[in-house]
Design a protein around this nucleic acid. Structure first.
Lengths: 195, 195
DNA sequence: GAATAATGTTAATCTAGTTTAACTTCCTTT
DNA sequence: AAAGGAAGTTAAACTAGATTAACATTATTC
């Protein structure tokens, strides 16, 4: 298993001894998924949090009218899960699907609670990670209310250039909360403006 | 200081010994604010996280056009802060203002880092709190994209009946991401439908 | 390399929600 | 109890973004 990216990532926030690192590695698992496969489906119980080693995923929600809404993307060194389902072990609201062949390291629900006991420092690590995710999420709410679709698109491009390249445009539209047709219009406006 | 509500609240997630409780109480402070006062203003560095004992607050953001956008409310037993500013100690994006005379218990930035060292279990406590807040925040994003303003208003009323009573309507409109005029229209539609 | 599916574009029509502005009702304060 | 401000309402005109539908381009697959 290629665990170095994960250990490096954790090392940015807390220091683990080599014993602790070994213990951690015993309690997590490596897995590959093919493009199109689901890690979690709406209605299932989300059994693991995944740290992305390679590949790309989307977390999305299908509403009552059958429309898809993308909640987040995840690429290398990001975490993904239906966290609500994971922490409460109740049926997931979201689907987590691989958009490319993807390699992840997974923390399962049981393992993680044990790990928190064995390595209490991990509480700190996950507290910080989630704190950051929460702050980003609040920012996204504000942006969705105070910015136009065009402004949000420009911000997205600036903030996640890696993702814009790897993901079909209609999924970006979904993430931004607009239709693919309207994003297409915005893009042609932008091209026109830059001439 | 009336610390029982806080200790009860913490007790729902972790168990503190009485020594730890005493230690905790030494490192936090009680404060009263009058209606209208600000705990944090946009541009300031947010120096504390506040646990609400009594009263009501709003966290809001003023955009470039001078428009206010309410990010969250807080009432008894809720936490409030500009968490992004607090954790990075950089200038706040948000204002935190009291809508009533308000009593809070505050954790200051320096104190909380010390407390994490003295009582590592608090890492767990705050991890869980923030996890929950993050899940709620993601839900709100999905709702803002997949539901109409009317549906969001009904959901809000159902979810936070306490808040609807205590807060002026134009602030609820702001929280929902719509104008006060449109909320007024929605409300008159609802009255008409229920006749 | 033809065929099919997936993705992206354009344009017309439509609608949820905004803007503006005038008006009403309710709260405070004196 | 009068006056002034804050909060809420109504309605007309407007706009950002949705919907529909037809077409264009790019990938995939056999």
């Amino acid at each position: 298993m290629e665990s170095k990216p994960l250990l490096d990532y954790i090392g940015r926030y807390i220091h683990l001894t080599s014993d602790e690192e070994a213990l951690l590695l015993e309690n997590i698992s490596y897995r590959r998924y093919l493009k199109g496969q689901y890690i979690t489906q709406q209605g299932d119980i989300c059994k693991q949090e995944s740290f992305v080693l390679s590949g790309c995923l989307r977390t999305f929600y299908v509403d009552n009218e059958g429309q898809e809404h993308i909640v987040m993307f995840a690429v290398e060194n990001w975490w993904t899960a239906d966290l609500g389902s994971f922490i409460t072990q109740t049926p997931a609201d979201y689907n987590v699907q691989c958009l490319e062949n993807t390699e992840v390291i997974q923390f399962s629900y049981n393992d993680i609670e044990e790990l928190y006991i064995k390595i209490p420092k991990l509480e700190r690590f996950f507290r910080i990670i989630i704190q950051n995710a929460y702050v980003a999420s609040e920012k996204r709410i504000i942006q969705s209310f105070s910015m136009t679709a065009k402004e949000r698109y420009l911000k997205f491009r600036e903030q996640y250039p890696q993702i814009e390249q790897r993901v079909p445009q209609y999924m970006i539209a979904s993430y931004l909360g607009i239709t693919k047709e309207f994003l297409s219009k915005i893009r042609s406006q932008l091209i026109f403006e830059n001439e």
